[in-house]
Design a protein around this nucleic acid. Structure first.
Lengths: 197, 197
DNA sequence: GTATAAAATCGTTGGAAGCGATTGAAGACA
DNA sequence: TGTCTTCAATCGCTTCCAACGATTTTATAC
């Protein structure tokens, strides 16, 4: 006895018509007959009374129909429940510079939540230098950094993309006068910039 | 997904060992692997975590195990319940001459009851001539007759066997004197005999 | 008696399920 | 560190079963 046979039996039992059942199941009528015959042989019981060219459920058929429906319901339940199990669930804690977060995070969060509704994301500003310890202890799961390069043992680092570094000054500022800006000139200026640990 | 696959999965899940499960199921280990792989592909979910050469149930696997057990239980229930359904149940009412009943019925009833415990038999003495009406109205289901022949419309009649007709007399009776007995002699005698309608 | 409808049956074929052998990977242990 | 053992995955092969189309059988309608 297999679920395939029970499904076929259920359709035949509901329609009381082999040919129509075969159409609904996209099978040949002979295949439906064969499945029912094997089922009856295995269970050692007639499931249908063949009255002329009409068929009727036997008492055993009625009993089996109840079970067949329960089996099919359970089959659907399994698939539904497993679909929840396969959903990614849990919490991710992520360090990310606020300036990057402000620009990139909202659309990413939206798509992530749409795909994994049972997972939650937490963001923390990236002002802590003890990244490796935080990653290894599990306090954070992931970090985005604005930096040249990072080499940390036991931490996987992957460059995502490059960003141009721009010098921006007020119109009246001496550095805005035009001409090349040397690193010596920058040393004397007051700079507003991201700290890179 | 078929019951065969669920049974295989259940055994693997309980033993957490493909090779041992294959032995229990009388299958080759490769067949067990194939069944589990197909099940995982169809459900779109990993059922086991392969940690080195150990296997563990995933969350989805735990869920499926519950269902697999319920399915197998239901399978057993079906077969058990159908075994009751296939038993012949009901009541048979039978007319039979008392003399025949006394000789033949006890062993027949014993065997019949052993084979069909849920069916009951009732016997009525065969002194009613309205057999056909009784059969057609369902008052009786079956009748045994001691007679030459019966021709009743809508009633199936089947000869079972022939019985010799014996003349028995007391030792001092005139008919016991010896010599041939003619029908004329019988007409004058007082006979104790079964009435044949 | 003829036509029609429906299930049963038969012979054929493609695909799936099982098998044995091999590979690959991970522990166990010297 | 290297070897051995264990176990699941994989591969190629074979067998068998399930589906199919065609035909037969049976019963009902006309």
């Amino acid at each position: 006895m297999e679920l395939r046979q029970l499904r076929t039996f259920r359709v035949v039992a509901e329609r009381l018509h082999f040919t129509q059942a075969a159409e609904e199941l996209h099978l040949a009528q002979s295949s439906v007959s064969a499945q029912i015959r094997l089922l009856e042989e295995e269970l050692g019981v007639a499931l249908f009374d063949r009255i002329g060219r009409r068929i009727l459920l036997t008492e055993a058929g009625e009993t089996l129909l109840q079970y067949a429906r329960r089996m099919e319901t359970m089959d659907r339940e399994i698939r539904h429940e497993l679909r929840q199990d396969e959903q990614i669930a849990g919490a991710l804690t992520i360090r990310i510079p606020e300036t990057v977060a402000a620009e990139c995070i909202p659309p990413v969060v939206e798509r992530f939540h749409a795909r994994h509704p049972r997972a939650t994301l937490s963001f923390i500003n990236c002002d802590d230098v003890r990244l490796r310890e935080e990653l290894n202890t599990g306090r954070i799961d992931l970090a985005f950094l604005l930096t040249d390069e990072v080499a940390l043992p036991n931490v996987t680092v992957e460059p995502l993309r490059s960003e141009p570094l721009m010098l921006v000054a007020a119109p009246g500022h001496p550095l805005a006068a035009g001409g090349a800006v040397t690193s010596a000139m920058l040393q004397e200026a007051t700079l507003l910039h991201m700290r890179v640990d």
